[in-house]
Design a binder for these strands. Structure first.
Lengths: 195, 195, 195, 195
DNA sequence: GCTTAAACGAGACGGTACGTCCAGTCTTACT
DNA sequence: AGTAAGACTGGACGTACCGTCTCGTTTAAGC
């Protein structure tokens, strides 16, 4: 008694794109809480069943919509030899990303859903957070080798200490997420890791 | 055509308590996303209108339920003269709080709602985040006076840098929120502020 | 564990009327097969739940709509002493009724539903067919007493033999249901019962 | 722009049989109202398109399924010279037929559809009702010639008067369709036509 | 016997309606 | 006047089928 999974080779790519685009649009227009599967289907010109056939929930659609915006796996950070300059570069890029309307709409929605959907949370950590933090961690390890970063620190904690303030400000909206804020955080961060 | 505001002096305190308690219970039992106003009313033995009369939304009920669990405004941090020891005390208390099931249920629910309700977000920042961070900030200012903390830092950013990693780990569930984690974060934090 | 039956004293009579009227209208406009509960609710300006609260199915709504058109229980046939004249009167009335657009729409719908809903069939026989045939049967019994109708016949069969041809022609649409047809049937019928 | 009619010579007879058989089976199992084209296709091991290629609707499938059960056109009634005996024979055969589960399932379904499908109604009257009644009518005409049946009657009405009570009882389920009932009806019928 | 066009099984598609749940409002009877 | 109860309109849920539309894969006619 199998689960009657649909055949992915027969999937209509045009519909898939339309659904992901419609999801992002609607989140931006009316706010995630007021987006319904019905509205996404209508906007995408698609039957509801086509959504339910391929995604288990609205949250899963949003996750894929988010991934579609971030196609590039982060790969590797640049290594100019200057750890501060290199980190500043990523952080500024992160700030820009978080201020992009499409990214913001999708990622806020994702962060909401994650609160009530453990499976989605796991996917987000595996596919979004971990890869990003891992590249930063690798760059920091290289800096450690180069003697620019002290060795008595747990780099897993260190990367959370670096990104935590960004997510804090962005999720709790305690202020604007600016490059100035990034620089302030980075200054403190670097000092904590030096000598 | 007045707004027909209800008269708070005639409010039934027993009902109010039952509603807040029912809200917390249900969030713990079925998860916030599956809690309905109808279920809260039924569990509390209360008419739905009694909820809508006193709260504008389910989110507002949860906010009050959360406040009812945290009645004490934080007041002032102890000042033993040792800034590290004093901060360790608050952070350990914070960790304990975030691991309390009632607190956790209500606060996670609140953090979810905040994503789609700007007014609630403002209330949360004003009544929950700001008071807490303000006491830490005052203690840090005292430490600055005492020469234990460098003067070239923006204390508003500093407190976000301290709390950010906690919220990051708790909201994104990247790991357990332990006193060990608190100590690790604190060690880095203190070093960033020294000298 | 009771069935959570709604309280009929709190029922909104205006909604009930609107639903029954909308049902009849829609059947006439688009044909019974194309009438949906959703359309009835929309036409009546009513939530779907209000229909499902009070009726178990579309068929039950149609049954009530039909009853609302035929409020008068048939009571008693006239007895002028002339059984043929008296029967002609009822049959002509029946022909007129079956040719009334509202009656026809509702009664055809009812006769369709009855084919797949045994409970509804029972209600229809009890509340519609039986009362009508019973009055005719009583009039025939009186005629038997008066010696106008032979005694060696089963009057239950006799009334079916009288009405059968009408339903046959009407349900199977083998021809117009006219007073002429009624008179032809009656002539044969009377001869079968005489002497 | 031709109509792209399929080529009947290439039709798969095995599929056709499987579809008609599946239709009858499903009607018997779950009731006509709950039979879907999808279910027929699945049961018959056939693609949905194969049904839609050859039949315009579920009703048309059922009609063909019904015809497949009644392959023999009625031909001619026996003429033993005794009109009553000859009619009794046909009526008893009719009663037996209406009590056959396959026939009943298919014919009830057909009678339901006929209520909302004028074209199907026409086909049913032409191919089912008319041929049957025509043979009875011819036998009655012969009896008229032989002086066994009075001449001042419209034989078209007469045959409806004979069959009406059967359909009435069967469609409205006012009682069992038995040979006893047939005999009662026949007794009345014959008397109406004599002398 | 090989080619090729059709019918075929399978099933995804855009839709409509189902019957249920809940939101937020309104009404009634009780305290 | 506030309350418990619960009916109301409305809208979204997730499911079942509709009838249409591809997809390969038989299969049978005509070369």
């Amino acid at each position: 008694m199998t689960d009657k999974a649909p055949d992915p080779t027969r999937r209509n790519e045009r519909s898939r794109q339309a659904i992901l685009a419609a999801a992002i649009e609607l989140i931006k227009e009316v706010g995630y809480a007021r987006v319904s599967v019905e509205a996404i289907a209508a906007r995408a010109g698609v039957g509801k069943q086509t959504i339910y056939r391929w995604w288990p929930s609205k949250a899963a659609v949003v996750f894929d919509a988010f991934l579609a915006l971030n196609p590039a796996a982060p790969g590797e950070l640049p290594d100019t030899g200057d750890i501060v300059a290199d980190l500043r570069l990523v952080l500024h890029a992160t700030v820009a990303e978080f201020n992009d309307p499409d990214f913001e709409a999708a990622y806020r929605a994702l962060n909401t859903d994650v609160q009530d959907d453990p499976a989605l949370g796991e996917r987000m950590r595996e596919q979004v957070l971990r890869p990003t933090l891992a590249t930063v961690k690798r760059r920091l390890a290289a800096a450690q080798e180069a003697g620019q970063v002290r060795r008595d620190v747990d780099l897993d904690v260190v990367v959370e200490v670096l990104y935590g303030p960004f997510y804090y400000r962005w999720l709790l909206r305690t202020g604007e997420l600016t490059t100035g804020y990034a620089d302030d955080v980075l200054t403190l961060f670097v000092r904590a890791l030096s000598g």
